[in-house]
Design a protein around this nucleic acid. Sequence first.
RNA 1: CGGGGUGUGGUGUAACGGCUAACAUUCUCGCUUUGGGAGCGAGCGACUCCGGGUUCGAAUCCCGGCACCCCGACCA
Length: 412
Amino acid sequence: MAMKQSRLFTKTRKEAPKDELAKNAQLLIRAGFIHKEMAGVYSYLPLGLRVIKKIEEIVRREMNEIGGVELQTTALQKKEVWEKTNRWDDAVVDNWFKTKLKNGTELGLGFTQEEPLTNLMTNFISSYKNLPVFVYDFRTVFRNEERAKSGLIRGREFYWKALYSFSKNENEHNVFYARAQQAYQNIFEKTGLGEITFLTFASGGTFSKYSHEYQTIAPAGEDTIYLSKEKRIAVNQEVYTDEVLSDLGLAKDELTKSKAIEVGNIFPLHYRFSEPFGLQYKDEKGEKKLVFMGSYGLGISRLLGTIVETLSDEKGIVWPASVAPFKIHLLSLGQNEKAEEIYKKLKVAGAEVLYDDRDITAGEKFAEADLIGLPYRAVVSEKTVAAGGAELKRRNAEKSKIVGLEELIKLK
RNA sequence: CGGGGUGUGGUGUAACGGCUAACAUUCUCGCUUUGGGAGCGAGCGACUCCGGGUUCGAAUCCCGGCACCCCGACCA
């Protein structure tokens, strides 16, 4: 998609809002990607929404690749479903947003999808022939956090992907679980966080010995992990014990302590949900058995925040090409028809280009381009036209070079 | 939820208890300029978060509320 910047109603700011300290929120607001509605609640503006969609598509492809099937559950939740697992009571789950129908019936705004989805799947799973099945869901969820913080890192309303696996038994589950790990690794590599994101062993809670978190190293992180750069794994401080280290074959002296942001979390659910909902199947012998489940979460909006938090410099955001709202930032300096012409050709070629066609000073265009942070900047002025084309520069490079239209189209 | 802090034009800041609440930026208009948020001039824009109180007089002091930020706790 191509777009003229004169059509983009958002505006950049020189100064960070005083009610945000987190780098991700400051930059995303300054560059016009998000709008703060209230603490922990943000609207996605056109540029921000495009990044969300890019990340979503990367995640979708990986989920499809491992056999995931997409659906969408509801935000409104009914009490009875959650009472089956004892997760309706505020004494048990303290971050519910609850509301009521006109007639007084209590409802909740979903904070996760295990209950509704397990309940829903009882309609469709009845035989071993129906298994395994992997279902995923992108949606906004709500958590009444006592303290929202760090911009998009911990919000009260956020966008995430949840996948649940339904398997015949633990062995079958383990096969998928391993594939899911690979898919997660692919996602972080493709979104530019591969180098600084670690598979992390964390508390398994009531479900199993461990859960696996994907932790991205960042000073702004809420978690503390001990990581091995060589082995590409880490241990969450909450389970940093001699026993766990020996389990994993890690020695203390090979681990580095670091703050990190939890960008994903996967773990087996065993029969925690299939049991209360009676999610069973008949095996080959006609015997009823419980479905073995697994959970695979990933915060899309948190990932957006994490990318900005970790991949920005003093001038602004530095988007990885894979998630950038546009690939090319085309700037026209002064009056010239050449820029318009290049824009039209790029558009026809299907390039993802944001064309700054506004009548403002060069300095302003450069400063804004750096702040918005698209991977490539192509300047078209009398000077560059005389030199044979556009001046192309990567966002994170110092050097630039003159290129023709063909080379620009290649970048799309 | 415990502790700390902050609320002033859209944004960022200033103002001893005392003139018509100031400056920068944004925005509008004019001129100039055109390779790093450029210059000059003119304008628009604020019941100083809300409600009480003290005082001749409150943005400023006091009380209550709300909002926001930070630390901690919490975070299948």
